[in-house]
Amino acid sequence: MSVRHALLALLSEGPKYGLQLRQEFEESTGEVWPLNVGQVYTTLQRLERDELIESDDGEAEAGPQKAFRITGAGREELESWLSTPPDMTSPPRDELVIKVLAALRVPGVSVHDVIQAHRRYLVELMQQWTRLKEDEADFDLTFALVGDAELFRLDSVVRWLDAADGRLKRAELEAPGLKTGPIFRRRLVAPR
């Protein structure tokens, strides 16, 4: 999430002071967001320049004591951002995918062992998140949502590993010594 849109979202609830925005930003991101103070104020300054937010004491520098409110243009920007899908057309440069592809080419290395090492690590991370979520979720809805997102993300990676494991096993049975092609990348054309 961009800091810019997070701040617009907070201001959509009503006018707020710089300091208040900073504190609410931290709370609303489940405290998992490392961010420095300056970033909030410089972002506010840019939002004001772009006329997405405004304040009464116009020229003064953005700081803890300056009050802001969202403009009509700001609200439009926020609403369009909320429903714009993030770019998922190009496969992310996934280190894990590259490692599994590379393992296929290294003599004396079992790709299944490599896959299992990653699978175990991911499941251990998931155990930690599930623990944390069970511990915190009753008290902190934001944390529960962030935890869910992490769990589904990690889960999808495990499922990819499982699928890769199965696909490779079938391929070995059907055509032992099957070669893989070069690692190249193709990009989806975004639907418009």
């Binding site: 991911l122 998931m126 155990q127 990690l154």
Partner: peptide, 15 residues
């Protein structure tokens, strides 16, 4: 299912 398994104190992998 990894999400289900993640509730466990210990996960054992079978192949």
């Amino acid at each position: 299912d990894a999400q289900l398994a993640s509730w466990a104190d210990r996960v054992v992998f079978i192949r």
